[in-house]
Amino acid sequence: MTPATDPATATSLPIGSDADLARLRRQVRRISAELGFGLVQQTKLVTAASELARNTLVHGGGGQARITPLADGPRRGLRLAFADTGPGIGDVEQALTDGYTSGGGLGMGLGGARRLMDEFSVDTVPGKGTVVTVAAWITGVPAPRPGTG
């Protein structure tokens, strides 16, 4: 997996308010549509982005989102990364469990985002912050065969 050929295509957005969350959702919708994602995939991307950005704001005290178009041979995708310098996640496995919440929500944020995306990772250090990175690939485009790309 590599970023699209032009690194300038990556977009960084602040996450510090509800208005920033709305702006992020619009950007993810627009970029995913431009890349050729279908409506269902766009909705999954926007939903995951919304959940992860809300976690960044509420639990991490705000941070940054980075939206990066991806290219892997003929395949196209989108990577979303959410970074904060908040308290970190003490127990990632517990945080990924459906129904677990540390803030009075429904407890579907991290686990729900993981189910919606093709790739998911959490890098967290208690007391230092968290980076959650997800990626989705346009369906219907075959993965490159070994040795061809």
Rank of each mutant, 00 (worst) to 15 (best):
G112T: 09
V125Q: 14
T97D: 11
M108R: 14
E93W: 03
L116T: 06
T85Q: 15
Y100T: 13
G104K: 08
A83H: 11
D118F: 06
G104E: 05
G111S: 11
V125W: 01
Q94I: 08
G90D: 14
G112L: 09
G112E: 11
P126I: 04
Y100Q: 09
P126Y: 04
V122A: 09
V92T: 13
A95F: 02
Y100K: 05
G103W: 10
D84Y: 04
G90I: 00
G104L: 07
R115I: 00
G90L: 08
G105W: 09
S102R: 12
D84W: 03
A113N: 07
R115T: 10
S121L: 13
G104I: 05
D91I: 03
L116K: 12
T101H: 09
G88R: 05
L106A: 13
L110A: 07
E119W: 11
L96A: 11
T124G: 04
G112K: 10
I89L: 14
M108G: 01
G86F: 00
M108E: 13
L96M: 15
G109Y: 02
D123H: 14
A113Q: 06
M117R: 05
G104C: 07
R115W: 00
G103E: 04
G105I: 01
G127W: 03
V92Y: 05
Q94W: 01
V125G: 03
G88A: 04
S102F: 06
G90Y: 00
R114I: 02
E93H: 14
G112V: 09
R114V: 02
L96T: 11
A83Q: 13
S121W: 02
G90K: 12
G105L: 12
T124C: 05
L110N: 07
P87V: 01
M108Q: 14
G103H: 11
L106W: 06
S121T: 15
A83M: 03
T101V: 08
L96G: 10
D84R: 02
T97M: 13
T124R: 05
A113K: 06
E93A: 15
G107D: 03
G105C: 11
D123S: 13
G99P: 06
L116P: 04
V122P: 06
